[in-house]
Design a protein around this nucleic acid. Sequence first.
DNA 1: TTGACGCATGCCGATATAGGAATATGTTAT
DNA 2: ATAACATATTCCTATATCGGCATGCGTCAA
Lengths: 113, 113
Amino acid sequence: MARAATTADAWNAVAEPQRRRILTLLRGGEQPVTEVARALRMDQPCASKHLRVLREVRLVRVREEGRRRLYALDARGLRPIHEWVGGFQRFWNESFARLDAFVRELAEEERKP
Amino acid sequence: MARAATTADAWNAVAEPQRRRILTLLRGGEQPVTEVARALRMDQPCASKHLRVLREVRLVRVREEGRRRLYALDARGLRPIHEWVGGFQRFWNESFARLDAFVRELAEEERKP
DNA sequence: TTGACGCATGCCGATATAGGAATATGTTAT
DNA sequence: ATAACATATTCCTATATCGGCATGCGTCAA
């Protein structure tokens, strides 16, 4: 079995930094492809392809307006990610506490060997 | 350019469901490889490889104890993900009509700084 | 010492990228 | 009808998976 497709789910789609930049940009409102490309300094086919991935996992919606296609954010698919990661919240604070304790321990041993 | 390595960052590491299951399991405390494999019904080499990825992106730490290696959660790398996704929180509960309103609000604030 | 155990790594195969260039499709304007 | 514009798609190449399976390599026990 190969690696999961980027279109498999929001997790895979969002693992790509360019696509995250697109989503961030779209928080400012819907944008046509060319504008996305210009704002993020990528060429148009590249933007189209990333937007397609985002569309397939439903993180963006498209609206046709004349010859342009306006892409808009649909962040609902990010919610499960936020919730899953949120389940670790207490562990990253705890990690700091443990690390601090460990570091102090080391310093203590250093002082009186 | 090919797709980013799974070891490129926490985003890519965590895009794989099996690895997410491992992290969830490790919230219950450190575990040796075989135990991870048993609990998640994967074979040992598979567990080892996933754990290696998680180790390379520093989402887990290893501690050697005799012939076993105890893997422990280090959730700090999840924090940036939580924060980034959290930036979209206001966008997923609201209906899209409200979202439009919000966008206009932003534009308004932009106009008069 | 000889196994048995715990774990990591190597190889294979099928699949899927991301970006770049060229091109196809479709819409508006002249 | 034709040109200009906006977007999507196709072809290409290099690279990296993920799971199975076999194997290598320390470490502990009899």
